[in-house]
Amino acid sequence: MSWLSIVALAIQTAIGFQGASYALAASGLNLQFGYTGLSNFGHVGFLLVGAYGMGISADRGWSIWAGFALGIGAAIVLGLLLGIPTLRLRGDYLAIVTIAAAEILRLVANARPSEPLTGGSRGIGGLSGRLGFFEPNFIPEGRYGLGDSLVFNSRQLWSMLWTWGLVLLVTLLIRALVRSPFGRVLRSIREDEDAAKALGKNVVVFKLQSFVLGGTIGALAGAFIALDSGAVTPSRWIAPLTFALYTVVILGGAGTVWGPVAGAVVYWFVLDAVDGVLNNLWFDVSDTTSGAVRLALMGIGLMALMVFRPQGILGNKKEMLAGAR
C-alpha cells in the first residue's frame, strides 16, 4: 500500500462516521469538563443508554423516534440520578460515581437476567434495518470520493450527513450558550465555585444543567453509533472510550467551541495513519499487535502535544497559562 493511500484512508476515517461520532460525543464532554469543570469519567455510560435506547426500540418494533426518545430520556434520568446527590459535593465524588455508574450499566446490560431487554452479552443486532435508518436515503448507490482509498458508499454518506449535521447543530447550540450570561456562570464554576456562590449563583442548578445536557449529547452519539453499525453490544462501552473522548477534548482544546471537532478529526487521522504505517509497511502483523503499538505511539504523540501545545489545537495559550498560575 502506498503512502498516499494510507493518508487517504486516514482522512476517510477522520472525516467519516468515526470522526463525526467522536466529535459529537466529545462535544457533550467539552460542555461538562471544558466549560464547567465537571469531571465526568463515565461519559461512556451516557453513550451506552443512547445506543440501547435504539436497540430496545428496534426489538420492540418501535420507531427510530421512539429510540431517540428512549435514549435521551434515559440520559436525562441518568444525569439527574448521578448529578443530584454528587454535584453538591466536592468534584472528586462526581468522578468516582460516574466511572462506577458507567461500569455498572455495562455489566447490567451484559448480565444474563437482562437478556430479554438488552440481549445480554450478544447484544441486539440488525437494528438499523428494523428501524429503517437507511430507508429515506436519497443518495444513489455508488462510490463517492477521490482515488481508490478516500471513498464512501451511499450508506456511509447517509450516516455522515446526519451525524456531522448534528455535530454542527450541537456546536452552534453550545456556542450560543457559552457566549451568554449562562455560559459565563458555567466558566465561573469551573474557576471557583465559592466565588460564584458568593455572587448569588445557584451553582448546583447550573452544574446539573450542564451535566444533563452534556450527557444527553453523549446519548445522541451513542444512538448514532448503534444506527451506523446496526448493532449494540455491551463490550463496546468500556472506560477506555471515555478516556479517548477526553483525549479528543484536550487535543482539540478544552473549553473551545470547535475544539471537539478539530480534536476528533485529528485523533482519528493520527490513529489511522499510524495504524496504516504499522500494518502495511513494516509489520504486516495482526491487528492486535499493532493495536498496542499504535496506542503507545498515540500516547507519545499526545505527550508531545502537551509539551508543545498544552492548550490543544484551538485553545488560547494565554488562557491556558492563566490557569496554571
Binding site: S180, P181, F182, R184, D192, A195, G200, G323
Partner: peptide, 23 residues
C-alpha cells in the same frame, strides 16, 4: 477568589444581579 481564566471584565459582568440571560 478571582476567576483566573476569565477576563477582568467577565469577572465583573458575572456579578450582575438577576440576569435574565443566566436562565
Amino acid at each position: 477568589k478571582t476567576l483566573g481564566r476569565m477576563t477582568v471584565l467577565d469577572n465583573m459582568l458575572l456579578a450582575g444581579k438577576d440576569q435574565a440571560g443566566e436562565a
